[in-house]
Each structure stands twice: as structure tokens, then as C-alpha cells.
């Protein structure tokens, strides 16, 4: 395993182990990718994708299939982060 990825690979496999009980494979894959998208930082998701691109040997089959649905593109953002929002009213 490439250095520094053990942690996220283990996390992804653990998530996969929960969703493996889902009999509908597509639902299982969606469950894994949704969970990762919802709770992991973009940097962690990027690392996972890069890990898969470099072989991803330690990643189980189901979470590996889910990686295709993991997003890393910057989301559409309203106000620039840290910049004053439209109706600034900080206390």
C-alpha cells in the first residue's frame, strides 16, 4: 500500500462492509459513495481516488466500485468563502 493511505483505505473498506449487507448492489454502491461524499473532506476523497488510480490493491471490490461515484470537483459556491456575504450581519 502506498504510504499515508492506510487510514482512508481502511475507512473505505469499513464503510463497504456495512453496505455489503444491502442486497441491491447499486444501492450498496450508492450508499458507500454518498457516505464518503457526505463525511469525508475533499482532500481525503482525492487521496482515495488517486489510490485507486494507482492500483488500489487493498481496497475491497465494493468500495472500489463506489469510488467512481465519489466526487472531488469543487462544488458550486455562493459567496466566496471568508468573504463578506450578501447581507453581512455578523454579531
Amino acid at each position: 500500500m502506498s504510504g499515508g493511505n492506510e487510514h482512508i483505505v481502511q475507512m473505505a473498506n469499513d464503510i463497504g462492509n456495512f453496505f455489503r449487507a444491502e442486497s441491491d448492489r447499486q444501492l450498496a454502491i450508492a450508499g458507500i459513495s454518498n457516505h464518503i461524499n457526505k463525511f469525508w473532506t475533499r482532500r481525503m476523497r482525492q487521496k482515495l481516488l488517486e489510490y485507486v488510480q494507482h492500483g488500489g490493491n487493498e481496497l475491497d471490490e465494493l468500495p472500489r466500485a463506489a469510488v467512481a461515484h465519489v466526487t472531488v470537483a469543487p462544488p458550486a459556491q455562493g459567496a466566496a468563502i471568508g468573504a463578506p456575504a450578501a447581507t453581512a450581519a455578523s454579531k
Binding site: T41, Q77, G78, A79, I81, A89, S90
Partner: peptide
């Protein structure tokens, strides 16, 4: 954002172990 007067991230942050 409107109440706090600043743009906010839409991405989850780091958990303690992370």
C-alpha cells in the same frame, strides 16, 4: 452565511482522527 455575514464552505471538514 447571511446571518454570519460571510461565505461558508460547503465541504465537510476534518474529524478529530482525520
Amino acid at each position: 452565511e447571511t446571518t454570519w455575514g460571510v461565505g461558508l464552505q460547503s465541504e465537510p471538514g476534518l474529524r478529530i482522527p482525520n
